[in-house]
């Protein structure tokens, strides 16, 4: 395989992994369910996007690459809706967000 493609793929995969790491750290550190939803809908989805991109550039056919890329919007739609449903339910139940003043929390 072309070395340039391989390097590009490796770089994209590593960026993806970094976002996953950030997402997990956020999930462990953020104070309440709303803030944790933020990390899952942003950091993790972006991580998956980069991983899919990294795998798509080294796919053996254009169609395979398209199939991989098709997965991303599906996950985005699902995760936006699920996070909305969870946040809405949490709000209905009266789970109040933990608020801070921006200096520390």
């Amino acid at each position: 395989m072309n070395v340039a493609i391989e390097l590009l793929s490796a770089a994209l995969l590593l960026v993806g992994a970094t976002f996953y790491l950030a997402g997990t750290v956020g999930l462990l550190r953020f104070p309440d369910v709303y803030a944790r939803l933020h990390t899952l809908t942003k950091a993790d989805n972006l991580g998956l996007g980069f991983i899919i991109l990294g795998l798509a550039v080294q796919a053996d056919s254009l169609m395979m690459a398209c199939k991989l890329l098709l997965i991303w919007p599906l996950v985005l739609m699902a995760s936006a809706t699920v996070s909305y449903s969870i946040a809405r339910r949490a709000d209905e139940m009266g789970i109040a967000p933990i608020s801070g003043d921006g200096d520390s929390a």
Binding site: T18, F19, A22, G23, P31, K42, N45, A105
Partner: peptide, 24 residues
């Protein structure tokens, strides 16, 4: 915007002191 958002949350999560001012 989504790449920006990912970076922003990543930085927020990874910095030593959490700097959040959440509100609904």
């Amino acid at each position: 915007q989504s790449v920006k958002g990912g970076f922003q949350v990543a930085i927020m999560a990874l910095r030593p002191r959490l700097k959040l001012a959440p509100v609904i």
